[in-house]
Design a protein around this nucleic acid. Structure first.
Length: 816
RNA sequence: GGGCGAGUGGCGGAACUGGUAUACGCGACGGACUUAAAAUCCGUUGGCCUUAAAAGCCUUGAGGGUUCGAGUCCCUCCUCGCCCACCA
């Protein structure tokens, strides 16, 4: 008898699996394909943490299960290594980002191996390899050639700490999500990807996909589609017009002033000389404020009168134009018609600056449009609205819209909250944007034959203070010739954001070594959509949205055969520290899964503990003891198998006791796995093993062959969760090939049906007793049994029975 | 403020279309084995009443409702988490 020693068996099998390449996915195999994807990591200096381990373990369990169920499973892994943290880490440690990435990738690779996941390493990719980013650049050029990558001047978010522009998605609570510093605003000439052109497609595409509501809702909210009206106001004593967007056109007669965002381009043109000084000082003040500071001012809005007036096109009323930073340049037109009688923000502003208020409901007081009127437009009657007085808001809206249309004063407009994707980074550690700027031809694609544009290795890659990429310092790299006219030209020096490489990486796994295409059409066709994509909720409005956008674009370019990349998406929950707070480096409460392995518990115990902890999508605190419990269970399974192997052969009759337990356990584990209830599946396995132990202790006479069959089934069922120990036990049981290539056990569903059932007896809905009765007993039979039962008699004899509710094989309820 | 979700023992959590609430695990307590400890095994473990047992009563955030029967469905409220947020 040997002891269960993960330290001994785990490395042994990890080596063997690698040598035998048992997890390789086969292109064009006849078995049904299944692509199981988990997000490839950003190889930070800290190594794999528990969050990674949860995601990868769950993906691994499911991939192994599908393999045993007879699928040709593609379960790949790679590295998303470009990006700020590595660069900042490299700066801090005085090494090159290349070297830092290399070290970190090796460390991750090593840790992956110790955790024993069933990846097909032959397909591994890394976004920083020129052979990979060649195709990232190639796809960018497709965007450029389709007019969806544009070099333009835009007001963007700027991280003063990282000294680079950012996408809107990267700003969380006014802070840069990577470094947590407050962002400011800056107008820069930048590359943007026109994701807004795909806004509707990104909403519609969600239909027919298996995404949980919290993910699709979050994307829909992020895209933020709203229907409204755009209306043009003439500027008084000028031929200029100012366009505003409103979703409440029926309140237009309550507009008593107009507000422009401080960044609005017309301000500089229109401000009269006598107001210039105050306006400029306000603009300066607004510019230096961060978004967060603007938000803090919510209760005390600030603004300044511009000195000019606008004409409401519906009633020709002259209203003052104000400038205030509660209006954002980045949404709508950067200008609003202010309706203080019906809009809370305008109301606050009007009160502060003593501006007139007109109420357009007959209640003649402040009524919040969004909260009150919009949900019940027929309940409110219009007033102070000329010929529309007396109508309810639903009718009024329709009539005003028609009028505006007829008089061509404006038009119906759909407005999105989502912004175009700011795609330039003024940092070193990213894919160079493959564009050459020519005096005559403007931005020009680098010809395909010259791809990849390799990121030059340089010593001085520190970000600059002038808003230029560090690449701009390398003159002999920057200076080149225009591919069209061959005149001296300059390379684009901005790099791509770290979300670029990950926007299409799953496709590269289908054909990772192809040097002529990003993937061959045949392989794209064979593997098709990712069947199951597990990842972090935090990527819902970042990576997940970006990659759906790229995929939809590639589909439009006829470069991929499917409209969407991911058929089924799930987000795993966050593991908190044991005290329920977030794990963080600063608090020093980070749990390192590798340490747990080294303590002797092994990778299997971690896999088990992590998936047993809670439902996979639930945020839950870590409990160190759960590893102990998992280890204990594995040890119990080990000893059970050892005990069975050491049984003396006997000639007892074959019995169905064990087969019943196995059938029940198999049915439960299978159902729970299909529904991703990993924690319950493990509970079912534990119950199964506990039942086997009970039978063993009961000294029933059971054939050794029955025992062998039973433990064999347990090993198969446990294999996805605890791959190493099961491989070892499988060998002990005399098998020669890997348990992970074995078939998932089948069972006779007749064994699930017990001949007797426990039937609950209730009096007035209260449980009084439980009767063990033959399956499918009739109501009459049960009633007789109940009347005979001495305990129930006390209830049943005293009062008359008014009604009997009977649920076959479940319950009988006497209403007395 | 908007969207989504969650409140069940000492803890993590289970409960199919309403039908034995607390599965499974952790922890705790008691016992066996041991010179001892670890490991392992066995037993107990929601609360109240009771010497004990039997029986009974209460219990799924709070309150109400529907139902023979509610953790599950409906209404009101409270608390917590995540995402978005001066979005016109």
């Amino acid at each position: 008898m040997s002891r269960y020693e993960p330290k001994v068996i785990e490395p042994k099998w990890q080596k063997k699996w690698a040598t035998d390449k048992i997890y390789q996915a086969l292109d064009f195999d006849a078995k049904p394909k299944f692509v199981m994807l988990t997000e490839f990591p950003y190889p930070s200096g800290d190594g794999l943490h528990l969050g990674h381990t949860r995601e990868y373990t769950l993906g691994d369990i499911y991939a192994r299960y599908k393999r045993m169920k007879g699928y040709n499973v593609l379960f790949p892994m790679g590295f998303d290594a470009f990006g700020l943290p590595t660069e900042n880490y490299a700066i801090k440690n005085h090494v090159s980002p290349q070297a830092a990435s290399q070290t970190n990738i090796e460390n991750f690779q090593n840790q992956f191996n110790k955790l024993g996941f069933s990846y097909d390493w032959s397909r591994s990719i890394s976004t920083i390899e020129p052979s990979y980013y060649k195709w990232t650049q190639w796809i960018f050029l497709k965007f450029f050639e389709a007019g969806l990558a544009v070099h333009e001047e835009t007001l963007i978010n700027w991280c003063p700490f990282c000294k680079t522009g950012l996408a809107n998605e990267e700003v969380v609570n006014s802070r840069h999500e990577r470094c947590d510093n407050l962002v400011s605003k800056k107008t820069v000439k930048q590359w943007t990807l026109k994701i807004t052109k795909y806004a509707d497609r990104l909403i519609e595409g969600l239909q027919g996909l298996d995404y949980p509501a919290r993910i699709s809702d979050q994307q829909i909210n992020w895209i933020g589609k709203s229907h409204g009206t755009s209306l043009k106001f003439k500027v008084d004593q000028s031929d200029q017009e100012i366009e505003v967007f409103t979703t409440a056109i029926e309140t237009v007669f309550g507009a008593t002033f107009m507000v422009l965002a401080p960044e609005h381009p017309l301000i500089k043109k229109l401000t009269p000389a006598d107001h210039l000084a105050v306006v400029n000082s306000y603009l300066d003040q607004a510019r230096t404020k961060t978004d967060l500071e603007r938000q803090e001012d919510e209760r005390s809005k600030t603004g300044v009168f511009s000195g000019i007036y606008a004409i409401n096109p519906l009633n020709n009323k002259r209203i003052p134009i104000w400038i205030a930073d509660y209006v954002l340049m980045s949404y709508g037109t950067g200008a609003i018609m202010a309706v203080p009688g019906q809009d809370e923000r305008d109301y606050q502003f009007a009160q502060k600056y003593k501006l007139p208020i007109i109420y357009v409901t007959t209640e003649n007081k402040f009524v919040n449009y969004t909260k009150k009127i919009k949900p019940n437009p027929t309940k409110y009657t219009m007033t102070n609205s000329q010929q529309f007085d007396g109508l309810n808001f639903k009718e009024g809206r329709k009539k005003i819209e028609d009028w505006i249309k007829k008089e061509k004063l404006g038009q119906a407009k759909i407005q999105y909250r989502i912004r175009d994707w700011v795609f330039s980074r003024q940092r070193y550690w990213g894919e160079p944007i493959p564009i050459i700027h020519c005096h005559e031809h403007g931005p020009v694609s680098v010809p395909e034959k010259d791809l990849p544009v390799v990121l030059p290795a340089i010593k001085d890659y520190l970000p600059t203070d002038n808003g230029q990429s560090p690449l701009s310092r390398i003159e002999d790299w920057v200076n080149t010739v225009c591919p069209i006219c061959h005149k001296p030209s300059k390379r684009e020096t901005d790099t791509m954001p770290n979300w670029a490489g990950s926007s299409w990486y799953y496709l590269r796994y289908y054909d990772p070594h192809n040097d002529r295409e990003f993937a061959s059409p045949q392989k794209l066709q064979y593997w098709g959509m990712v069947d199951f994509y597990l990842g972090g909720m935090e990527h819902t409005t970042l990576h997940l949205l970006y990659s759906r956008f790229w995929h939809q674009f590639l589909y439009d370019q006829k470069l991929v055969p499917t409209k969407e990349p991911y058929q089924k998406r799930r987000g795993q929950g966050i593991i908190l520290a044991a005290d329920g707070t977030k794990m963080s480096k600063s608090k020093g409460n980070i749990v390192n899964p590798l340490e747990i392995i080294d303590q002797g518990y092994g990778a299997d115990a971690i896999h088990l503990a992590i998936s047993f902890l809670a439902p996979y999508d639930q945020t839950t605190p870590w409990s160190p003891e759960s590893v102990v419990g998992s280890y204990r269970f594995l040890d119990r399974v080990w000893r059970l198998v050892e005990d069975v192997l050491s049984l003396e052969p006997n000639d007892y009759e074959s019995s169905r006791d064990l087969a019943k337990i196995i059938a029940r356990t198999t049915a439960r584990v299978e159902k729970d796995l299909e529904e991703l209830n990993f924690n319950v599946a493990i509970a079912a396995l534990m119950e199964g093993v506990n039942s086997l132990y009970k039978i063993k202790e009961s000294q029933l006479q059971i054939k050794k062959e029955d025992w062998l069959e039973a433990v064999q089934a347990i090993v198969l069922l446990l294999a996805p969760f605890a791959p190493h120990i099961c491989e070892e036990l499988w060998l002990k049981l005399g098998q020669t090939s890997s348990v992970h290539l074995a078939d998932w056990p089948s069972y006779d569903s007749k064994l699930l049906i017990e001949s007797t059932v426990k039937l609950v007896v209730q009096i007035n809905g209260k449980i009084r007793t439980v009767l063990e009765v033959p399956r499918d007993s009739s109501q009459t039979q049960i009633e007789l049994l109940a009347r005979d039962n001495p305990h129930l008699q006390t209830y049943l004899s005293q009062q008359s029975i008014q009604r009997v509710v009977f649920v076959p094989n479940k319950l009988i309820n006497f209403v007395i």
